[in-house]
């Protein structure tokens, strides 16, 4: 049935719009990059929890280095891999704040592995948002510890060879085992249903930081369509077919 769309497009009929805390700066991410979807979820959760003034984010080195340009909260930009160390200091000095890190897999699972595991082991009351796209996106698509076996990158053009490069590193499984973590989950943002679940996970992680329950990690299995050399739509399909087998979705720990 036809209805003039100007009868529908009215403020009282609004059901979805860009989060209030996401500003109008155009984001530098490639078209279709998962980073943008996760940014929106973080902005929505902070707004819905009413903790805009209580939140301090720690941005990484990697494509998300400019996260602070897009979400209007307080941020600190850490050196590569060091976000959990900065977050440790910020949260210990400001125990009432909600402190989270936002890190890629090169940042968190390569150069920053020590900071990650030890912050988790100390049970720092921070939330770690971990964007695992299996590659160093920002620097031109090099192999990361998380790159799948056989997956082609600019530094393993014939595919990752485990005999030479080791196995894909499953960080969530590692930090699930250390006693300081209270919540470890693996999510994705490739469908509306997955996005709704990922948002709930981010909310729980942020609540845990506020409640001082220990370290939470929300891994988001993500796409880097530029690094993977696929269209955004194809990258989501490839992720479902290949990434989820090695990085299965769901909660690993919730105590």
């Amino acid at each position: 049935m036809h209805m003039d769309i100007n009868e529908i497009i009215k403020p009282e009929n609004l059901v979805y719009t860009k989060p209030r805390l996401m500003n109008d700066n155009p984001m530098h991410y490639c078209p279709g990059c998962s980073h943008g979807v996760v940014h929106k979820l973080i902005a929505e959760v902070i707004d819905e929890m009413g903790i805009e003034e209580e939140t301090i984010g720690i941005a990484p080195v990697g494509c998300a280095v400019f996260a602070y340009n897009y979400i209007d909260i307080d941020w600190i930009e850490a050196a590569h891999g060091r976000a959990p160390a900065i977050a440790t200091a910020v949260k210990r000095l400001n125990p009432k704040k909600m402190v989270f890190t936002y890190q890629g897999d090169g940042d968190l699972a390569a150069i920053g592995t020590a900071e990650t595991i030890h912050a988790c082991n100390r049970g720092e009351n921070i939330a770690i948002i971990f964007i695992n796209n299996g590659i160093y996106g920002m620097t031109g698509g090099q192999m990361a510890p998380t790159t799948l076996e056989g997956m082609k990158t600019s530094t393993c053009p014939y595919g990752r060879n485990v005999a030479l490069n080791g196995y894909p590193l499953r960080i969530a499984e590692l930090v699930e085992r250390v006693d300081g973590t209270c919540y470890v989950t693996r999510q994705s943002v490739h469908t509306p249903a997955a996005i709704r679940k990922a948002k709930k996970a981010i909310r729980l992680a942020f609540e845990n930081s506020m409640a001082g329950k220990g370290t939470s990690m929300v891994e988001i299995v993500s796409t880097c369509n530029s690094g993977w050399k696929m269209s955004p739509v194809k990258a989501n399909q490839w992720m479902e077919e290949h990434m989820f087998a090695k990085y299965p979705l769901g909660d690993l720990k919730n105590v």
Binding site: G32, G36, K40
Partner: peptide, 27 residues
């Protein structure tokens, strides 16, 4: 194909750049 829209907001949710605003009415 505007007549087919049901205001489900799936498009808005998946858009990485927050470009889509969704409206819905019950008739």
């Amino acid at each position: 194909n505007p007549d087919a829209c049901i205001g489900c907001a799936s498009c808005g949710l998946v858009c990485p750049d927050g470009c889509i605003t969704v409206y819905k009415v019950k008739l």
